[in-house]
Design a protein around this nucleic acid. Sequence first.
DNA 1: TTTTGTTATGTTTGTATATACATAACGAAT
DNA 2: ATTCGTTATGTATATACAAACATAACAAAA
Lengths: 127, 127
Amino acid sequence: MAGTKGEKYYNVFLKYKIWLVSREEENILGDGKVNLLKEIDKQGSLQSAVNTIGISYRKAWGNLKKAEEILGFSLVEKHRGGQFGGTTTLTDEGRNLIEAYEELHKEIDETIKKTVKKFFNHINDFK
Amino acid sequence: MAGTKGEKYYNVFLKYKIWLVSREEENILGDGKVNLLKEIDKQGSLQSAVNTIGISYRKAWGNLKKAEEILGFSLVEKHRGGQFGGTTTLTDEGRNLIEAYEELHKEIDETIKKTVKKFFNHINDFK
DNA sequence: TTTTGTTATGTTTGTATATACATAACGAAT
DNA sequence: ATTCGTTATGTATATACAAACATAACAAAA
């Protein structure tokens, strides 16, 4: 929105955020949890995922649990014990959901970019 | 996102939020302040506007001040004193900005609605 | 059976943000 | 001059949410 519309000029930019909710509007999934899930997928453990991202294990663990409760299915499969302590991996359902989320996100990114450009003849360089 | 995509079915809905920021990404204007400004425009006073909306005068006043500081121009013109205590009215710049914001918002609403419908063959009834 | 590092979870501390409270300044009308 | 309800602003309280701390449970491998 930094640009001209008619004679008006505003030095402002558009930001936006998307997320998924249940029918009761309980928060299910946004960029934060999706990033976490992708990092889990990469590393095979929740602990190392949160270390890489820089968030607290306690919070991440609780968030995943809550999302799963609301969804009614598991996003991750967790094992504890073993020489290396344990593992956490994505379930197929988890992988499918984040895939759908990211596809939708991408389409919305593009569609908003177009709208902003059309509206202000300006490319919005924020996310 | 409550709908089918291929064989998948998710009982989830999309929510989103837009807002305007400065180049330094300071928060300037979102739905909250726009509603406030429109109520001020209707009533001619900040006090009655916050009473109607149900937010605290202290906070609303501070928010407007901050937005004006960042923008570098006034959104409202305030007068105190007089038999009826005082008044607050929109400036032309204020009116123009909220008008532009709402126009953009409307376009984004439509464009996201289309995207969600295309993506999930489903009308998202949330805001 | 001891070791290991992760998962699991309660509790406590911290921080940010909103609300509440209190009070002064103001100026047109009476 | 007094009154009035609003603007203006500091301070203090409450509430929500994130981070930090602490510790148990676990099971494969050595």
